[in-house]
Every structure is written in structure tokens, then in C-alpha cells.
């Protein structure tokens, strides 16, 4: 158990280029079937939304990051989640670059023996990402004009 915990807690990058495919999510779920102490998973998926702003429709979002700091923050958030909840696994993937509406840009995947810790940790990680990780985004409209985006309070 200790060996498994230290293995899953080893820092690995959360940021990568391009959207998160349904196949990647499916593979990630399948990859946990051998971890038979797990009784509950929770998953959060962030999807690029086609907001209408001043009559113009968002077609894509372009993500950039302060990469070194962002990876440190992702790692710290994950460590705090392990400290606060009884987790078996926690994975975070965040996209960079240009994503079209409907594509998945954030994948948070938590696992525990019973449901409470997986569910609470998943929510905690998502809210922490929104406020603590230096990722920036601009919404690109159908006419290629854009506006910079900023996270709002949880709702």
C-alpha cells in the first residue's frame, strides 16, 4: 500500500497540448481496474462552452500557462488533496493550446475505498485549480476576434 501510494504521488505533468479525448478518459478508467482496493471513482470534466457574448458566439478557447508555476501548483493541490482525504489515486490533466467548443479541457479523476473521499476530493481539486493555477485563456469568436477570460466564483 505504501509503495503504491508513493508511486501514484510522484509528480508528473498535468499540462499537455490539445484536448482530452474520450479514449484517454476511457483508458484512464480501465487502467484502474487492477487496483481492487478502490470502491469509488469521481470524475470532473471541463468542456469548452459556446457562450454568446454581445451577440457573438465563442468558437474556441486558447489556453496558455505559466508552465513551471502551474505544474508546481497542480502538484501542491494534489498533495493537499491526499493530505485532506483518504484517496487511493488522484490524476489531473489540463489542456493547453486551442480547443474547439465541445472539447474537454480538464480531466480530474479521484479514487478511494468509499465514495465520500473521492467525491469531496474531486470537488476540492477542481475549485483549487480555478483559483490557484496560473492558466490563462482567451475566448475566440466565430469571426476570429477574441476576449480574455477570467474564472468566476463557483456556481
Amino acid at each position: 500500500m505504501t509503495a503504491e501510494r508513493s508511486k501514484v504521488k510522484k509528480p508528473k505533468p498535468a499540462l499537455f497540448d490539445g484536448c482530452i479525448s474520450a479514449q484517454k478518459i476511457a483508458n484512464s478508467i480501465a487502467g484502474h481496474q487492477t487496483k481492487t482496493r478502490i470502491g469509488a471513482h469521481d470524475i470532473f470534466l471541463g468542456q469548452v462552452r459556446a457562450d454568446k457574448i454581445d451577440g457573438k458566439l465563442v468558437a474556441a478557447i486558447e489556453y496558455t500557462a505559466y508552465r513551471e508555476m502551474a505544474e508546481k501548483e497542480f502538484h501542491a493541490i494534489r498533495e493537499r488533496a491526499f493530505g485532506s482525504f483518504d484517496l487511493t489515486c488522484a490524476h489531473i490533466y489540463h489542456s493547453l493550446g486551442r480547443l474547439k467548443v465541445g472539447e474537454i479541457c480538464l480531466f480530474v479523476f479521484t479514487s478511494s475505498v468509499r465514495r465520500y473521499d473521492a467525491m469531496e476530493a474531486c470537488r476540492y481539486i477542481v475549485e483549487e485549480i480555478k483559483t490557484k493555477v496560473p492558466v490563462f485563456a482567451r475566448e475566440i469568436f466565430e469571426d476570429q476576434s477574441y476576449q480574455w477570460k477570467e474564472n468566476t466564483a463557483a456556481k
Binding site: 489556453y63 489540463h94 479541457c105 477542481v126 480555478k130 493555477v133 492558466v135 485563456a137 474564472n151
Partner: peptide
């Protein structure tokens, strides 16, 4: 690391100017 106004700067520090975050 996010720094408060009182944070003292030192020679050769890496200082980032960050707009509002928009991750997720």
C-alpha cells in the same frame, strides 16, 4: 509563488505579472 505586496525582492528574482486565472 504568489507574493504579497510586502514581499522583498532580491537580485535576479523571477517575477511574473499574472492576470486573472482561467484554468478549467
Amino acid at each position: 509563488s504568489i507574493a504579497q505586496d510586502s514581499c522583498v525582492l532580491n537580485e535576479n528574482d523571477e517575477v511574473a505579472v499574472l492576470p486573472g486565472f482561467a484554468g478549467g
